[in-house]
Amino acid sequence: MLIDQYYNKDDDQVTFTRQQSSDFAKQIAGDFNPLHDLDSKRFCVPGDLLFAMVLAQYGASKQMHFTFSSMVTDEVRLLLPEECALLTLNGSNDREYLTVKQSGDKSTNATLIDNLVSSYVRFSGQAFPHILIPLMEQQGVMINPARPLVMYQSMLINLQRFDLVEIELQFDQEKTRFDCNDKRGNICLAFNLIAHGQIIGHGEKHMVVSGLKPFEKDAVDGIIAEYNQWKKDYQG
């Protein structure tokens, strides 16, 4: 499958190296968040890579809800539970990192899973700055340039059918929302799943942002410029 090279499986345990995680973020998701850089002191495995790994291991269900409890690092060894309606992925340190609630029919079709994963992670990884910055500007707030904190909280997908495997993702601006309360905000990015011109499902990505400040255009332009420079430096 698409993501097989981005994680390591040993019996019922899964690990991720920094190289695998960074390559997935940058090459598959187009995500240049410095948290996924090889030398980052706050390094963590992309949540989208955890999502992709779960689908590769368990298949895609018609209803799936992922909740991210803790950040996974390259030192974490995740234990894969037996197939069930509520998957709980703990580390060998007994800490909970991810839960997946799944229901409805299931598909292990590799093409469907690869297309679903690649479409979703490209959308998710590139939400900053193209979607998140305009949302924040509407609320008159911005992330703190000195310590940006955007936490991937949860995501859900509802698929209506499995027979159409050429899946694409379409951003749903109308259902997307940003609820801001002082220095903290909750973001819901909504999307539709399209195949052969038909809507065959929908989903949402939920994030929490904290340390918000009043919006300053010059500062935001600087954040975007710095992000684009990281991308340019990586691409050479």
Results as ranks from 00 to 15, higher is better:
Asp4Tyr: 05
Gln5Trp: 05
Asn8Ser: 07
Asp12Met: 08
Asp12Pro: 00
Thr15Asn: 04
Phe16Trp: 01
Gln19Thr: 07
Ser21Val: 04
Ser22His: 13
Lys26Gly: 02
Lys26Gln: 11
Lys26Arg: 14
Lys26Thr: 04
Phe32Trp: 14
His36Cys: 02
Leu38Gln: 14
Leu38His: 11
Phe43Tyr: 03
Cys44Thr: 09
Cys44Gln: 13
Gly47Pro: 06
Gly47Trp: 09
Asp48Met: 01
Asp48Arg: 06
Leu50Tyr: 03
Leu50Pro: 04
Met53Glu: 11
Met53His: 05
Met53Val: 08
Met53Pro: 02
Ala56Leu: 01
Tyr58Arg: 05
Ala60Trp: 05
Ser61His: 13
Lys62Trp: 03
Met64Ala: 07
Met64Gly: 04
Phe66His: 01
Thr67Lys: 13
Thr67Gly: 04
Met71Ile: 00
Thr73Ile: 04
Asp74Arg: 00
Arg77Cys: 14
Arg77Phe: 10
Leu80His: 08
Leu80Gly: 09
Glu82Phe: 08
Ser92Trp: 08
Thr99Pro: 01
Val100Arg: 09
Ser103Lys: 13
Gly104Trp: 00
Asp105Thr: 07
Asp105Gln: 13
Ser107Ile: 05
Thr108Glu: 15
Leu112Gly: 02
Val117Cys: 10
Ser118Ile: 10
Ser118Arg: 07
Val121Arg: 02
Phe128Ala: 10
Ile133Gln: 11
Pro134Thr: 06
Met136Glu: 10
Gly140Leu: 09
Met142Lys: 07
Met142His: 07
Met142Arg: 11
Asn144Ser: 09
Ala146Tyr: 06
Ala146His: 10
Arg147Asp: 11
Tyr152Lys: 07
Ser154His: 06
Asn158Phe: 10
Asn158Gly: 12
Gln160Val: 00
Val165Asn: 03
Ile167Arg: 06
Glu168Cys: 01
Leu169Ile: 14
Leu169Pro: 05
Gln170Ser: 06
Phe171Asn: 06
Phe171Tyr: 15
Phe171His: 15
Asp172Met: 12
Arg177Lys: 15
Cys180Glu: 12
Asn181Ala: 11
Arg184Lys: 15
Gly185Lys: 05
Ile187Arg: 10
Leu189Asp: 01
Ala190Phe: 00
His196Arg: 15
Gln198Val: 07
Gln198Ser: 11
Ile200Leu: 14
Gly203Lys: 06
Met207Ser: 14
Val208Gly: 05
Val209Tyr: 11
Val209Phe: 12
Gly211Val: 01
Pro214Cys: 00
Glu216Thr: 09
Lys217Glu: 14
Asp218Arg: 11
Asp218Thr: 12
Asp221Lys: 14
Asp221Ser: 09
Gly222Val: 05
Ala225Pro: 01
Ala225Ile: 06
Asn228Ile: 10
Asn228Cys: 10
Gln229Ile: 06
Lys232Val: 04
Lys232Ser: 14
Asp233Ser: 10
Asp233Tyr: 03
Gln235Tyr: 11
